[in-house]
Amino acid sequence: MSSATTGALLPAGDLYPFEPAGVTRDPGRSRSGPAERGADVESAQPGAERDAVLAISGVSLRFGGVTALADIDLTVAPGEIRGVIGPNGAGKSSLLNIVSGLYRPSAGHVRIAGVDFTEVPTQRLAHLGVARTFQNLALFGGLTVLENVVMGLTSTIRSGPLGQVLGLPAARREDAANRAKAEAIVAFLHLSGVAHRPAGELSYGLQKRVELARALVARPRLLLLDEPMAGMTATEKQELAAFVREARDTYGTTIVLIEHDIGVVMGLCDRVAVLDYGRKIADGTPHDIAADPLVIDAYLGVAHDADETLEIEEAV
């Protein structure tokens, strides 16, 4: 069943959204919708959780005695760009690693595409319509840019090694179709000029973009971006932000964006959750978040009275 859904997301050779889904085509609506719901969507609206592309509930992660994540709830609605921000070590990447099955949560469960998991099976992630990028470059340096992007379609491959080696018609057709899809995405992200260069030779910013292309090529329903802009120059950041927004608008991809840089997130995201020391301290529209005193404390140093509030909360 899961492969059927993925298949439906991959109309051959079609670059344009096949479903005129209102939610995804109209950023304005998806932006105002969650805004009305406010900060605690999960508890207030069980319906939202059912429709959610991704719903994380009660997830905790402990390494020995260290608690990396404590009882995190997070829902991601179809077609939105969902930001998760927080200072270093807040547990953002851990959260993404749980969603992609690289970590097994100590408690809680993750709901992807209507299926509940206590441990997400990484091997089936692509079939579930989930793709991700990594905080550190995770390209295949020995492959060209185009080949890297073709690799993003691995989960759809039907032909076996023998068919590929012997060049059977089905395998050749599949390879040609995948190359065409990859070339389309490569062009979409303005990478055609370097398509045949080894990925490992490119500049940092370009490599990040290739990673985005590799994640996008299978038309995932849910795209997890782990600090895609870390280490980029201001110009590169703006470019990538534009690409992320365009990817959502063109392909209707739901995006979870983990970012360190508040500025980027505020301009790009529909809703933002803020993590600090493994707990979610705020969740809402960028506007709400920006005004939240807890968030300001977490980022700009702690005012004395707020510090006490935190300590009281922790004690409870």
Binding site: L102, T122, A131, R132, F134, A138, F140, L143, Q164
Partner: peptide, 19 residues
């Protein structure tokens, strides 16, 4: 594709698994 899988496993096993 099989050869690319080989290289993917060599260059970044985690990314290969996720894909």
């Amino acid at each position: 594709q099989t050869g690319r899988n080989f290289i993917a496993v060599r260059d970044n096993q985690t990314a290969a698994r996720v894909i």
